[in-house]
Design a protein around this nucleic acid. Structure first.
Length: 571
RNA sequence: CGGGGUGUGGCGCAGUUGGCUAGCGCGCAGCGUUCGGGUCGCUGAGGUCGAAGGUUCAAGUCCUUUCACCCCGACCA
């Protein structure tokens, strides 16, 4: 490819104000261009990388026995209604109508489509297991796009769906875990495999493949001793019992002129923070309930865990008005002791969800549901009970994991994930069944597996760049080498042209900088674009019948006879 | 959706309290020069100042509405 003919050349000023390296570099170097927020043009250079990544993914998926196909982008809305995901999907579905008025969802993920396809076939256990996958554009009406390719509103995802018996599933899931690790290894991305929350996808367990990065949106914890790794939304830790042996004292109401925060309570009473009850009142709109989350004062509530425990879908903080007028309590003084069972005006049930950490503390203290009134020596079980008890606590760095090591906090970019879906979809969608060996109809047991190609590209750039530009790993680079021609004398032009021809004939893809530009510009652009090799041909080298070779990732240069250059790329 | 910010040639920006023909750098085109780390010089093209409405003798500048984009939050494989 000649640089003079390339559409989408590097720019010195383009995109310079973006904070995130991959965002800035991919735009500056001419790989992508923004259309509107969260929607990107993939330019020729970017498309070349996109293809490389897809090819690696495809190779490993095929090797794992998965079969590529493609589903329509427009999904009949009835399918999403069949699984209730028109209301529970975490992302806003985009919808369109055709000229007859039929409703479609723009596909954001394709579990329903996969199930709908499979149930059109009359399969038996002899056909199991199988795994179908595709690369296709996904649409998600994200509230806010972020960080260039990191969070966008439409992107190509590789999404796969396995159908099997329950017994077969474990092997498939573990196999995909291996496959994904191999894919990211080959792409030059180190990833942590992190247990995570299933969210709206459904199912019981899943893992995220996370590329560690400070700018990533996934926060997770690792216990390096045991290898335990879990997203903050599911991370567990060993609970301590600060004063489990203390004798229970009688409940004691006290007047307390204090502010609304935890700190105010600690300061006012001069007692430990872990002895205080932290109360957070939420409203779950879909189920029209109040959820009062209570937890030991030195811990924080993780809302995702809370949603799982309380089976809630749409939590929001209750307003001060709701706390006062409807629940009859007082912001800053909410307490499970004597809390109303339902809202006076709304009639919403008040569901108390307690974290087990409260069991490890005797003689707690907290509000009394009245302004400036507190209670001392509250005891769980004696003075209040919970409607639901479950782990709703956010892990913290330095805590002991349940396997004994210390939890270390990490951040990263979620580039892929694998989900156990079980019977979640096949029980909601009628007819998603196969015939077993006894002739009985059985629902398929499913898993699904996704990789965002564009996000992976961005994650690779985050992991592989320096102050001068991108440093592509060999396997994903859009070309193997930049051929930089310095000068335009006949001898130099001929030598460079011949070298490019020889390299291409030898199967080495090159980006040939044949522009009439200064050496500084050419070197700077070569560094910015970040191809693994730079081959410089100038009057100086041509005189000696040589070219200069340099790795983008290194600093040493090597002079090689022109005729020997293609051989340097073998193997 | 809430808070903050920005919209002026392709890109990056300047443009006092409204005032004359809307500027600068980069880039682009042409000529020359230079040719191993963003050369130098000359010439030139390119802008309904995000959009609509209003105030005024006069609006890039003031007012109203609206749209887009960026950041934070809510939210989110």
């Amino acid at each position: 490819m000649r640089m003079t003919q390339l559409f989408g050349k590097p720019s010195k000023t383009e995109g310079t104000d973006y904070d995130i390296a991959s965002h800035r570099l991919l735009i500056q170097a001419g790989f992508v261009r923004e259309s509107t927020a969260g929607r990107y043009f993939m330019l020729p250079l970017g498309m070349a990388v996109h293809h490389k990544i897809s090819e690696v993914v495809r190779k490993h998926m095929n090797a794992a026995g998965a079969q590529e196909m493609v589903t329509p982008v427009l999904h009949p809305l009835e399918l999403w209604q069949e699984t209730n995901r028109t209301t529970t999907a975490g992302f806003e579905l985009m919808k369109v109508k055709d000229r007859r008025g039929a409703d479609f969802a723009l596909g954001g993920t394709a579990e329903e489509m996969a199930v709908d396809l499979v149930r059109k076939f009359n399969l038996s256990y002899r056909d199991l297991p199988f795994h179908i996958y595709q690369f296709s554009m996904k649409f998600r009406d994200e509230m806010r796009a972020r960080g260039g390719l990191l969070r966008v509103r439409e992107f190509v995802m590789k999404d796969g769906y396995s159908f099997s018996t329950k017994e077969q599933f474990k092997g498939i899931y573990d196999g995909m875990r291996e496959t994904y690790s191999a894919i990211f290894d080959e792409l030059g991305l180190k990833t942590d495999v992190v247990a995570a929350d299933n969210g709206y996808i459904g199912g019981e367990y899943c893992h995220e493949f996370v590329s560690p990065s400070d700018i990533g949106e996934s926060r997770y914890f690792i216990d390096e001793q045991s290898g335990y790794a879990a997203h903050e939304d599911v991370a567990t830790f060993t609970l301590t019992s600060p004063n489990a042996g203390e004798a229970e004292r009688p409940l004691k109401p006290v007047h307390a002129e204090r502010g609304k925060t935890m700190k105010d309570g600690v300061a006012h009473h001069g007692l430990e923070d872990w002895r205080q009850i932290k109360d957070v009142l939420f409203v779950d709109e879909p189920s029209n309930r109040y959820i009062l989350a209570i937890i030991r004062g030195d811990l924080d509530v993780n809302e995702t865990k809370l949603m799982q425990v309380a089976k809630a879908y749409g939590l929001r903080a209750a307003t001060d008005e709701e706390v006062r007028e409807d629940v009859g309590s007082e912001p800053g003084f909410i307490s499970p002791v004597g809390i109303a069972k339902q809202g006076k005006q709304s009639g919403r049930a008040v569901v108390v969800v307690a974290d087990p950490s409260l069991k490890g503390v005797k003689n707690l203290y907290g509000g009394a549901n009245k302004k400036h009134e507190d209670l001392l020596d509250i005891n769980y079980g004696r003075d209040f009970t919970a409607d639901i008890e479950g782990d709703i606590a956010m892990a913290q760095p330095g805590m002991l994991s349940q396997s004994g090591g210390r939890l270390v906090e990490k951040r990263g970019i979620e580039v892929g994930n694998i989900f156990q879906l079980g019977y979640h979809y096949t029980k909601l969608m009628t007819g998603a069944e196969y015939t077993d060996a006894e002739g009985k109809r059985q629902p398929y047991y499913m898993g699904c597996y996704g990789i965002g190609i564009g996000r992976t590209m961005a994650a690779i750039v985050e992991a592989h760049h320096d102050e001068r530009g991108i440093v592509w790993p060999d396997k994903v680079a859009p070309f193997a080498a930049s051929v930089v021609r310095l000068g335009d004398s006949e001898a130099v032009v001929r030598a460079a042209d011949d070298l490019v021809t020889a390299l291409e004939a030898a199967g080495v893809s090159v980006l040939y900088d044949d522009r009439d530009a200064s050496a500084g510009i050419k070197f700077a652009d070569a560094d910015l674009i970040g191809l693994p090799w730079r081959v410089t041909v100038s009057a100086k080298t041509v005189e000696q019948g040589q070219a200069e070779l340099k790795r983008r990732s290194g600093s040493e240069v090597e002079l090689v006879r022109l005729a020997d250059v293609p051989a340097k790329f073998r193997g």
